[in-house]
């Protein structure tokens, strides 16, 4: 009807935006396979040599190990600490619930550069800064609240009656946890785990401020490579970028089986 013009305009805009995205990502991918590429639609010669070069020159084995350790540890710790907190917030009448939610919300609201510098100052003072432990501890600051906020709606949906029913039918508290709570929590934990994993791999600022020579994750190494463009061929930087992208996309693809895209941003109707 009359809204047709608006719909068409909006659709064209979104299409244009998506095309730009494809261009941005596509450029990196094409460049990583180019022997040389200079102001032509596509490179004249193709090669996979930059991947080997990048693997060697950027010390990717070591960096990937750090990335896996950091992302894995942060995810595990965030779920371990976030699970009981989210469960308690969803189940019990917590007196200072509003204040607690605000406390958990702040590290997500305030940009990492703002609190990253004082955090880095503190951690370096205790000689944790620059180590893998420091990177893990710093990343946990926003990821733990993220875990809580992802888990909370999942747990609020689970009826208390299920726990009560299990108790009435003779389950002990531990059995209730083991046989009722845990299985019901699995979808939430899976969703939260995947989202935290992908967010941690891509999390730049805190890792950047806290990492030293041996504790860089892939995204930080990529930053330094892009920053020092000209030191090494751009194609090798792009090869590293593609490796990074492949890892993020692989996790994201799994995650999108469980979550809708709108769930990956803040819910505005909360609080």
């Amino acid at each position: 009807m009359r809204g047709g013009g608006w719909r068409l305009a909006v659709f064209c805009f979104v299409l244009g935006f998506v095309l730009n995205l494809v261009g941005i990502v596509g450029h990196v991918v094409v460049s990583s396979f180019a022997r040389r590429w200079f102001a032509t639609p596509l490179p004249p010669d193709w090669t996979t040599a930059w991947y080997a070069y990048s693997w060697r020159e950027f010390q990717l084995p070591q960096i990937l190990t750090v990335t896996v350790v950091v992302a894995g540890s942060v995810t595990a710790l965030a779920l371990l600490l976030g699970f009981p907190a989210a469960w308690a917030l969803a189940r019990r009448d917590i007196r200072a619930k509003g204040a607690l939610l605000l406390l958990y919300f702040l590290p997500l609201l305030i940009p990492q550069m703002t609190y990253g510098i004082p955090l880095a100052t503190t951690l370096y003072r205790y000689h944790i800064g620059g180590t893998i432990v420091g990177v893990i501890l710093a990343n946990l600051v926003p990821m733990l609240p993220l875990a809580i906020f992802i888990l909370l709606p999942f747990f609020e949906q689970i009826s208390v009656n299920l726990e009560w029913a299990a108790r009435v039918h003779g389950a002990s508290r531990f059995q209730v946890f083991r046989r009722v709570v845990l299985p019901l929590a699995v979808p939430g934990l899976l969703t939260a785990g995947l989202l935290i994993l992908v967010t941690t791999v891509a999390n730049f600022e805190l890792t950047f401020l806290l990492s030293g020579a041996g504790s860089q994750t892939l995204v930080v190494a990529l930053y330094y490579a892009v920053f020092a463009a000209g030191m090494r061929p751009i194609y090798s930087v792009d090869a590293m970028a593609v490796i990074y992208m492949a890892i993020v996309l692989a996790i994201l693809l799994v995650a999108l089986r469980f979550v809708r895209p709108t769930q990956m941003v803040f819910r505005l109707d909360r609080g």
Binding site: I24, V28, Y244, V248, L252
Partner: peptide, 12 residues
């Protein structure tokens, strides 16, 4: 772009 993060988008 949200998932890939600022650094990759910047390079692209």
């Amino acid at each position: 772009p949200i998932a890939l993060g600022t650094v990759l988008v910047a390079e692209g």
